[in-house]
């Protein structure tokens, strides 16, 4: 368990650093690269949480598809590949204020409420192992209707994106 903790803190530190770099770095492409780091870290956290299917999905969809899409977006909008001094707007302090206060609020209430509750409640960990099969069972039996709804949503998003982006 100690090893897990060490891994967690290492990955968490990388993630926090990268996340902050995503919103502070002056180069859009670099921001995307830092985003990849954050997303990979999230996948690693999923593994720590024994959700290996979700971790694989995270890598496939986020890093494999979404980041590539974002990079295409950067390319197509001809953002400068070098540094861009004007990436932050004039009222960034409002955002910074909001972010900091938000974090303080979240942290205090979390620490206040959950204290040092362990992640695994009694016998929870045994149920979670072998996660992929469970996800499939859950997805196709009790959550079939939301699953269908998401399919329709993806279709709608597909049509919408094409309708927006095509030149006519």
């Amino acid at each position: 368990m100690v090893a897990q903790n060490i891994f967690f803190y290492v990955i968490a530190a990388v993630m926090a650093f990268s996340a902050i770099r995503v919103v502070t770095v002056k180069n859009v492409v670099h921001a995307a690269m830092y985003l990849v780091l954050v997303l990979a870290g999230v996948a690693a956290q999923y593994v720590l949480l024994a959700s290996e299917f979700l971790a694989a999905t995270q890598v496939l969809i986020y890093i494999g598809a979404i980041v590539v899409l974002v990079l295409f977006g950067v390319m197509l909008t001809r953002a400068k590949l070098g540094e861009d001094v004007n990436l932050t707007n004039d009222y960034w302090y409002v955002g910074a204020f909001t972010g900091v206060i938000l974090f303080v609020l979240l942290a205090t209430s979390l620490l206040d409420h959950f204290g040092d509750e362990p992640l695994d409640q009694a016998n929870a960990s045994t149920q979670i192992s072998g996660n992929t099969e469970q996800v499939a069972d859950a997805l196709f039996a009790p959550y079939l209707v939301p699953f269908q709804a998401v399919s329709v949503l993806l279709l709608a998003a597909l049509v919408g994106a094409i309708a927006l982006a095509r030149k006519d």
Binding site: N89, Y91, V94, G95, F97, T98, I101, L102, V104, L105, T108, S109
Partner: peptide, 20 residues
């Protein structure tokens, strides 16, 4: 819109802080 959003969120966060 972004600025409106900033004000909105800042106000929300402040109110939430007061609440807590």
């Amino acid at each position: 819109v972004q600025q409106y959003g900033a004000i909105l969120f800042a106000a929300t966060v402040v109110l939430a802080g007061i609440f807590i």
